[in-house]
Design a protein around this nucleic acid. Sequence first.
DNA 1: CCTCTTTTTGGACGACTGTCCAGTTTTTCT
DNA 2: AGAAAAACTGGACAGTCGTCCAAAAAGAGG
Lengths: 208, 208
Amino acid sequence: MTTHKKAEAKRAFLIEQATACLAEKGYAHVSLRDIAKESGVSLGILHYYFASKEELLLAVISSYKGRFMEELEREVLAAPSGKWSAALARVLCRSLHEDRKLHRLWYDLQVQAMYVPAFGEQVKVIRSRLHQLISRMLVRLQREEQSTLTIDENSAISLIYSAIDGFLFQFLLDELQKPEDAIAHFEQAFAHLMHALFSSESLSPESR
Amino acid sequence: MTTHKKAEAKRAFLIEQATACLAEKGYAHVSLRDIAKESGVSLGILHYYFASKEELLLAVISSYKGRFMEELEREVLAAPSGKWSAALARVLCRSLHEDRKLHRLWYDLQVQAMYVPAFGEQVKVIRSRLHQLISRMLVRLQREEQSTLTIDENSAISLIYSAIDGFLFQFLLDELQKPEDAIAHFEQAFAHLMHALFSSESLSPESR
DNA sequence: CCTCTTTTTGGACGACTGTCCAGTTTTTCT
DNA sequence: AGAAAAACTGGACAGTCGTCCAAAAAGAGG
């Protein structure tokens, strides 16, 4: 069984290297030869561990996005009741600073998922997991503040999710052109966003 | 000069055909041969009218996005004072219904712009034009309602833009999986978004 | 030591890519 | 009409791509 473990470790290693390559050059411009060269292995190895390029990419998505979501869930769900948005801001800020290119890759793959059905499935799974995270926070918020939403919960979740996701997307686009001060304003701007979302009549509790 | 006009007309025709091809297959999977075949011309023609594939793609972006933004500006700026968000919703709903694949292409090219600097310039121009549209509406809103924003204008514009853009992006992703009822809920959901944005304390006028 | 399995290699294969150009056709102008 | 310019063709070119495989290397168990 030690051999089996070793094989899985190598598989994980290749996924990690492929992730780095993909994050650097993007889906449209990366090749298996790039990944093999960067990993210090021969081309054939990739087909030995992954049936096809598509399978490798799917493994990449679930690997790195899984790690990110675990951190997100851990940090955000552990935050004190009312201020989970602050915890969210902290995690996102750190992640955007350190793993900027991975976030770029995430949007790249989301777009590819609109063209390639196989990616669509994977993206769908991840998005619904993120929706669930928001849902849990929303439920907790209502319980602890003894309040209810004025619109149905699914609408609220979609709204919050799309606002946050769109905000990150715009941040990445901005940061591309002026890398220096974009991250500086991020936390403050994100606070504005959360405030705008939750101080509105639609989303905030009925009884304040 | 009639020859010059004819050449420009053909150029426009090729751009239009290329747009259709690109919208169908996406940036990563389209080739010049696809476009040539779909246009009913030979491969060499494309290099006769466009120096490179990149130049063709840039022409595609500014062409179709320019058309869309003209409609947007015309309809939204002509809307009665307070209810420009309704006009915006109407235009977006129609556009999402008819030109769904063009919107998908827009996100595709935005992502590519994060990797290819030449695209970045073009995307930047378009985004700033859309920002200006929001800015104009915001200024008009303040003047006609005799109010001021509680946060600086640029932050407000970025916030509104990213929220709307993120909303459209999520819509496209949703619609990919259940094409039937996604568009049905769009207008209502969009109304919720606008309400959430402008009934908040941050963005709404100080004096109601 | 030998044998069997797992792992790894480097190259071959056909298909595809953007670019380029020597010709051919069509149009335009005198 | 003929000549010059513009428009157009189809294929050649040099790459790159994902895939596949025969054979070599490494490891494991006896």
